[in-house]
C-alpha cells in the first residue's frame, strides 16, 4: 500500500478517477470493456492489497461470479435461443446465460474497484473533498471516525470490568450473554454521552460556530496532478464518445447483437484500457524511476 504512488496524488484526482472507473464499469457491458475492467481492477487490487487480495479474490469472488452467473437465467427468460426448459416450465435461454456471465463479471469488477477505493480514498481525503461543500457533515464524519476506535477500546475496558464482577459476555446461556452484552453497550452509551459534553465545550472554546469557518487541508494540487487530470479527461472524453456512438454496449435480448468493430472502436478500447490502468502505469513509472536513481548511486 505504501508503494502505491497514485494514492499520493491529489484527492480530487483520486476521486475523479474512481468515480469514472466505477461508473464506466457499471455501465458498459461490452465484452471487451468487461474484460478490461475486470483485469485492471484485479491487478490494481493486488498491487494495493498484496497477497491477501489474491486469496480473497479467488476464495470469495470466484464462487460469487458463478453464483451471479447462474442466478440470472433462473429468473430471466428473455432471449430467443431456448436451450431447455426448467421444471416449472420456464425456458432457459442462451442469451440469459451470457447476460448472467456478463452481469457477474461486471459485479465482480465493481467489488474489486471498491476494494481499491477503500485502500486509496481514505477518510481524510473524503473529508477534504467534501469539507467545503458539506462542512458540518464532514466534521461529524471526522468526529465519528475519532470516536469509533475510542468506543471500541472502551467497550473492551467495560467488558473486562464487567467480567471482574462476574458478568461475563462469554459465559452463561444465550439470553444471559446477550443481556450482558447490552449492559456493556448501555454503560458505554452513558460514558460516551457524558464525556462528549466536554468535547462540545472544547469545540465551542475553539470557536466552532463562528461565521466564516474555513477548511484547512494538507493536500496540494501540483503539476503532476494537473497532468494526470488532463490525461484522464482526454481518455474519458474518448470513452464517452464511444458510448455516444453505441460502441461500448451490446444488446442481449432478444438476440445478442454486438456493435460493428472498426478503427474508432480500437481507439475507444485503448482509451478505456489506459484510463483503467492509470494508477498501475503511475506506479510502474515510479518504480522504474527509482531503479534508475539507485543504479546511479
Amino acid at each position: 500500500m505504501d508503494k502505491d504512488v497514485f494514492s499520493s496524488f491529489h484527492p480530487l484526482v483520486n476521486f475523479v478517477w474512481f468515480t469514472t472507473v466505477l461508473l464506466f464499469s457499471m455501465f458498459f457491458m461490452h465484452p471487451v470493456f468487461l474484460t478490461i475492467s475486470l483485469t485492471c481492477s484485479f491487478v490494481y487490487s493486488v498491487v494495493l492489497n498484496g497477497k491477501k487480495a489474491v486469496r480473497f479474490n479467488l476464495l470469495y469472488l470466484l464462487p460469487l461470479l458463478f453464483f451471479v452467473a447462474l442466478i440470472n437465467p433462473a429468473f430471466n427468460h428473455a432471449g430467443e435461443t431456448i436451450l431447455f426448459y426448467l421444471k416449472n416450465g420456464n425456458p432457459v435461454t442462451l442469451e440469459s446465460i451470457i447476460y448472467g456471465i456478463a452481469a457477474a463479471a461486471m459485479f465482480i469488477a465493481v467489488i474489486l474497484w471498491f476494494s481499491c477505493y477503500n485502500a486509496v480514498m481514505t477518510s481524510d481525503k473524503f473529508i477534504y473533498l467534501f469539507g467545503r461543500v458539506i462542512p458540518a457533515l464532514s466534521l461529524i464524519l471526522s468526529m465519528v471516525l475519532r470516536f469509533v476506535p475510542r468506543y471500541k477500546a472502551q467497550i473492551k475496558i467495560i467488558a473486562n470490568t464487567q467480567k471482574c464482577i462476574g458478568r461475563d459476555v462469554a459465559s452463561g446461556n444465550f439470553f444471559r450473554r446477550a443481556h450482558n452484552g447490552i449492559r456493556i453497550l448501555s454503560i458505554m452509551t452513558t460514558w460516551a454521552l457524558e464525556n462528549a459534553i466536554e468535547t462540545a465545550d472544547s469545540m465551542k472554546s475553539r470557536g466552532y460556530g463562528l461565521p466564516g469557518r474555513t477548511s484547512f487541508s494538507i493536500f496540494r494540487f501540483d503539476k503532476r496532478d494537473k497532468t494526470a487530470l488532463l490525461f484522464m479527461v482526454i481518455l474519458i472524453a474518448i470513452v464517452l464518445y464511444g458510448a455516444a456512438i453505441g460502441q461500448n454496449n451490446i444488446r442481449f435480448f432478444p438476440s445478442i447483437k454486438m456493435p460493428v468493430m472498426n478503427g474508432s472502436s480500437i481507439l475507444i478500447y485503448c482509451a478505456y484500457f489506459f484510463l483503467s490502468l492509470i494508477p498501475i502505469i503511475i506506479d510502474a513509472a515510479e518504480e522504474i524511476k527509482w531503479k534508475h536513481i539507485r543504479s546511479r548511486i
Binding site: M143, R150, L185, A196, T199
Partner: peptide
Amino acid sequence: LVIIAVLSAI
C-alpha cells in the same frame, strides 16, 4: 454535531 457523532459512533 457532538450528539449526532456520538450516537452514530455508538
